[in-house]
């Protein structure tokens, strides 16, 4: 593809790296959070659920703005990372990961929480009567039964991070090889009237997103209810 420059390929590589790392972090944080949301009877459930869902409705600029402030030299996150000797996160790959995790959180937590809720208490009670302790029940009953939810969460988390623009622009800027992802590269190409390259990248994104969603909905049709019960 002669029309894509090395910088474009670098942006694609960076985008995929960002999405992969963010999805991994999201699974690590989102699984316990979703499990808590599915099981708790705490009155904080509503509050936490609403906070998790905020990125669905907020403009990415708002999330990006607050993250920028929080991760800046006077923000709580910024002070923490500086105290730990990590420096400041804005305009770094790590900063993009933090932003992506916040931005894509509902896309991972909600399918997982729904999957955990769909399992119900019964299989876990059964496991308890078969001598399985709490961790044993979680890893050997809850996780396998929630597998359809994990597939959905991984696909959505990854795809949503690939499609991120506003938050990246707010906290990551446009540094080639460091924070310049595909969506930002497209913006640059359009600004510079390089429509051919914008076409290649945009078309790539379009096909990628369509294939992802097709995978997701095709799976759902063939696997109604996830066989839980």
């Amino acid at each position: 593809m002669p029309t894509l420059t090395g910088a474009d390929w670098s942006a694609i590589r960076l985008t995929l790296e960002l999405a992969a790392v963010s999805t991994a972090v999201l699974l690590l944080l989102g699984t316990p959070l979703a499990w808590w949301l599915a099981c708790t009877r705490s009155r904080w459930k509503g509050v936490v659920g609403a906070v998790v869902a905020l990125p669905l409705v907020l403009p990415p600029t708002v999330i990006g703005f607050y993250l920028l402030v929080a991760m800046g030299p006077n923000g709580p996150l910024g002070r923490l990372t500086e105290a730990l000797g990590l420096g400041l996160l804005p305009f770094s790959f790590a900063g993009l990961v933090v932003g992506s995790v916040v931005y894509s959180l509902p896309f991972v937590v909600q399918p997982l929480a729904n999957a955990f809720e769909a399992i119900g208490r019964r299989p876990l009670e059964v496991a308890a009567t078969l001598r399985a302790g709490p961790w044993d029940r979680f890893f050997n009953v809850a996780l396998p039964l929630a597998r359809p939810g994990f597939v959905t969460a991984i696909i959505l988390g990854f795809a949503h991070t690939v499609g991120e623009f506003g938050v990246v622009l707010m906290i990551g800027g446009n540094i080639p090889d460091k924070t310049r992802v595909v969506s930002v590269a497209i913006y640059d190409h359009v600004e510079a009237l390089e429509y051919a390259q914008a076409h290649w990248l945009s078309g790539g994104m379009l096909v990628f997103s369509f294939v992802v969603l097709l995978t997701l909905y095709g799976r759902r049709r063939g696997n109604v209810g996830g066989g839980v019960g």
Partner: peptide, 29 residues
């Protein structure tokens, strides 16, 4: 806690683990 009580419980609907074969269900406990 339930998992430390030496009891067997048969639920109203058998509640077999759907992701495990009959043999693996039997071996679970």
């Amino acid at each position: 806690p339930t998992h430390r009580r030496e009891l067997g419980y048969v639920f109203q609907e058998a509640s077999l683990f759907p992701h495990l074969s009959v043999r693996r269900n039997l071996e679970f406990g």
